[in-house]
Amino acid sequence: MHARRLNLLAAVVLAVFALACGGGKRPSALTQPPPPPPPGTGSTYGGPRPQPVDAGPDVVPLDGEGVAASDFEESRADGEGGPLADVLFGYDQANLSDEGRALVERHAVWLQARREAKIIIEGHCDERGTVEYNLALGELRARAVRDLLVSLGVDGARLNVVSYGKERPLDGGSGEASWARNRRAHFVVRR
């Protein structure tokens, strides 16, 4: 009698377990009695069959991947002050300003005089946005520059677009001066 009441209590506690957790599961599962105690009187503590436990296999670092080829190698013909200076953008903007447009027009002249040169146009953003939207915004910035260069007669096959979002800022600082330098289209001459 007494034992039955306690079993009921155990079932109630299991039910509370499940409800407290928002489980909302089938009641039939809650009324199962607990598993039978292991054989013996408690001295054979390790009754159940051992279950293997370990941290699993270790990560195999992909050593054979090799170092990225052109990723970090930048041509001298780019960057601030170079013939293919960075084109800057306003906050959350992918439209070219009048200054930006004039700069891209000069770049088009430089590119038309060097028809062998292939260019990567990188789109970059400042740190003040989210990861994924900045990757989309960087793509729009680079594409705005590419589209203008193509409209000025540069062969589109020479122009590749890569968005870096906010992942690799030119200026690691915070503040408007740093942010303004980081909102840019950057030019890399492919070798």
Binding site: A3, L6, N7, L9, A10, V13, L14, P34, P35, P37, P38, Y45, G46, G47, P48, R49, P50, Q51, P52, V53, D54, A55
Partner: peptide, 28 residues
């Protein structure tokens, strides 16, 4: 490692498990 979970009200064993594995990371 032996694990036992008791329902205190009546002392019933709700869960009894034995785990065996490498000793280098007891956290697992």
């Amino acid at each position: 490692v032996d694990l036992r979970v008791y329902f205190v009200e009546n002392g019933q064993v709700m869960l009894a498990k034995r785990y065996a594995g490498p000793a280098r990371n007891p956290r697992v």
